[in-house]
Amino acid sequence: MRRFRRLLLISLGFLVLLVALGTGGLFIYQSSLDSDIVRLPAALPTSKEEEKQRPQPKPGLGETWLLVGTDRRSEAATTGDDAKAELWQPGSQRTDTIMLAHLSEDRKHAAVVSIPRDSWVSIPGRGHAKINAAFSWGGPALLIRTIETLTGVRVDHYAAIDFKGFAAAVDAVDGVDVEVAKTVRDTNTGTTWTAGRHHLDGEQALLFVRQRYNLPGGDFGRIKRQQALLKALSDRVLSAGTLANPVKVDALLRAITKATTVDDGVSLETLRTRLVDLAGLDSSDYFTMPTKGTGMEGEQSVVYLDARKTRALSEAIKKDRAREYVERTGPGNAVDTVH
């Protein structure tokens, strides 16, 4: 019933827009949104040789996206139509957030797997290094090749958002709610998060997901915060207050299309369809790629992935069996309440 209600609200929201815009207005509106989307022609590996080395596509096993957040804290946006700084500059940027998001073939389940940015992995043509160095050295294409080599999961689409774009998306839905388990102070910014529920605007959401100092687990704690914000934003997007309000629907679509950069296989219709798919989900699960500890490689502090457990989780994603994986191993990260 809840799934049906959300789908109905999306339909009503778009219907109101259709009536308000009319045929000619709708065409202009769609063209305007589409022109806001920045597409990278070489985001996915494109050469014949690279394609031979990639996991081959297998119909009927769902769809997997690589979601990336950049840690370039410039005053200028680096993604979308508002971008004034380049998304990727060789050697100058690394990824702060790396997530594999898998949507099941029946569109009833989503699995989101965060890969710690300091994971020590094999990068094609470069040897071993932190996984976020792949983006710095070779942009999205090298990062995708690295992740596909690590997991055996084929990446179907790529989407990147920077911190400023994320804040805009949060503001477009009038903020999001998060639950903090225990009062914690960010020793870097001086911000104190008291135990209980917080309603965050875009700038506050950035402070929340950027904190790593004084968090249980450091970067692992921040990963859970990132996932909590993603879930909170999804819940807000799919709420009645957003979907039944054409003004909010418009603001949301504008924020998304202006704040993200995608591969050139992603159309406006792709994004609209995925929004409908998200509304129809029965469940979603969040994971951190399994690790076996931290250590030092030279002067670098790194995270070591657990090869066996990483392979098991990756196989579940690859074969579209994430739900069975959860039934077998137990739930992933608890993100309704975080530290």
Rank of each mutant, 00 (worst) to 15 (best):
A172Y: 06
T151P: 11
T192M: 14
G165C: 12
D177E: 07
T192D: 10
L207F: 04
A181S: 15
N188D: 15
L215R: 00
D118R: 10
D219W: 00
S119M: 08
S114Y: 01
I144P: 08
V153M: 14
L143K: 00
P216T: 02
H198C: 08
H199N: 15
T191N: 14
G125E: 00
G217P: 10
R154I: 08
T187A: 12
V209W: 03
T187R: 15
G202P: 05
A205E: 01
H109K: 08
N214S: 09
I123P: 00
S114M: 07
H198V: 05
T192Y: 15
D156C: 12
A195D: 09
A141R: 11
G175E: 08
I131P: 05
G138R: 01
A159K: 04
H128K: 07
H198F: 10
I223C: 12
P124T: 06
S122A: 07
A169M: 13
L142Y: 01
L150E: 04
F166H: 02
G165P: 09
H128V: 01
H199R: 15
T189V: 11
W137M: 09
G127A: 07
D177Q: 14
A168T: 11
T189C: 10
V176S: 12
I115A: 13
G127E: 00
L207T: 02
G175Y: 06
R212F: 02
L215N: 06
H157W: 06
K182T: 03
G138V: 03
D156R: 12
G202S: 09
D219L: 04
S136K: 06
D162P: 13
V170P: 14
K164C: 00
T191G: 07
A195E: 05
V176P: 13
Q204W: 09
Q211A: 02
S136T: 05
D177T: 15
D118H: 09
A195I: 03
T187G: 10
G125P: 07
R154P: 06
I223K: 06
A172L: 02
S122L: 09
H128Q: 08
E148L: 10
S119L: 06
G127S: 02
I144H: 04
V153W: 10
A110C: 15
V180G: 03
G217W: 11
A168Q: 11
A141N: 10
P124R: 11
R197H: 08
E179N: 13
F208P: 04
V170D: 12
H198N: 08
V112D: 14
